[in-house]
């Protein structure tokens, strides 16, 4: 700011930069929203409108929910949402409990194999999930866990390296003196974890819940492999696959279905933006 602010050349330059900056941002936002926008407007169009109007024009009425009703029924979304909800609740509780317990032990206790376990998790995270499913499928088959909701939940609960690292970092910042004074007061190590540390972990728990929650809600590959019984075990992420069939090109229904599946993610995003961003970045603090 300061002295140069009054200089005419400087001011024009600043204006040009600002214009350029917002132009670039608007272009980015346009590219990002265009595919979503066209989907939303199409979801509100009647079949007639869909056939006769341009895909970019606004619908004649924003209160035409027929497509949504039809998509909801055809993709049995009610059932899908119920299944997804059950999966989310169980998987989130399980995976957060397990990864925070693991992080507690790895962070607080010195024992043989501590760094071995850490490295094992790190290396395992290098294996892409899709590649793993080649043989995980065989194991799930042997254990009779295909087409079983509990089986899918157990699989999804399995170690989540990102949560473990978020918790490890968080424990790093909780002073050990906290544990020690509780121990002196007669608390056990179990008590330290459940009564002292777990309540303090809240911010990390929220971050992990959101990251893992979004990942679980959106998981479609494993869901389509292990929950093949579409009538009873459909989940939101795979519910739309029903539209790949004979009604393939009725995009006004399909777009309505797409919008329905996006709404929960959008709500979570609007309310928990900060946690989502910080959760993603917490893996890469130092530049």
């Amino acid at each position: 700011m300061g002295f140069k602010g009054l200089d005419g050349v400087h001011v024009t330059r600043k204006v040009i930069w600002t214009v350029l900056k917002y132009f670039v941002l608007c272009l980015g936002a346009f590219a990002s929203l265009l595919p979503l926008y066209s989907c939303v407007v199409t979801a509100f169009k009647t079949p007639d409108e869909y056939r006769n109007t341009n895909v970019m024009t606004l619908p004649s009425s924003w209160f035409n929910f027929d497509n949504f009703k039809k998509a909801w029924q055809q993709a049995s979304m009610g059932k899908a949402f119920l299944n997804s909800l059950m999966i989310l609740v169980v998987v989130l509780i399980g995976s957060i409990l397990f990864s925070s317990m693991l992080a507690y032990v790895l962070n607080r206790f010195k024992f043989r194999g501590n760094s071995f376990i850490r490295n094992l998790f790190l290396v395992s995270s290098l294996i892409p999930g899709v590649a793993m499913q080649v043989t995980v499928y065989q194991i799930m088959y042997t254990l009779h866990l295909i087409n079983s909701l509990p089986g899918y939940m157990i699989l999804m609960m399995g170690t989540d390296v990102i949560s473990i690292y978020i918790f490890l970092q968080f424990f790093d910042n909780l002073p050990v003196s906290l544990d020690e004074s509780a121990i002196l007061d007669g608390c056990t190590y179990f008590g330290v974890y459940f009564k002292i540390l777990l309540p303090l972990l809240k911010p990390a728990v929220v971050t992990c819940m959101i990251l893992k929650g979004v990942a679980t809600y959106n998981e479609y590959y494993m869901a389509s492999l292990y929950l093949q019984d579409k009538n009873n075990l459909g989940v939101v992420s795979t519910a739309l696959l029903i539209f790949t069939g004979p009604i393939g090109s009725q995009y006004n229904y399909i777009c309505a279905g797409v919008v329905i599946t996006m709404i929960p993610a959008l709500i979570i995003f609007i309310f928990f933006q900060k946690q989502i961003y910080s959760g993603l970045t917490s893996g890469s603090v130092k530049g």
Binding site: L33, L36, T261, M262, F269, I276
Partner: peptide
């Protein structure tokens, strides 16, 4: 948010 949101859209969608 606008630039980030596509990352949260479900794959099939």
């Amino acid at each position: 948010g606008t630039l980030f949101f596509p990352y949260l859209v479900c794959g099939i969608a």
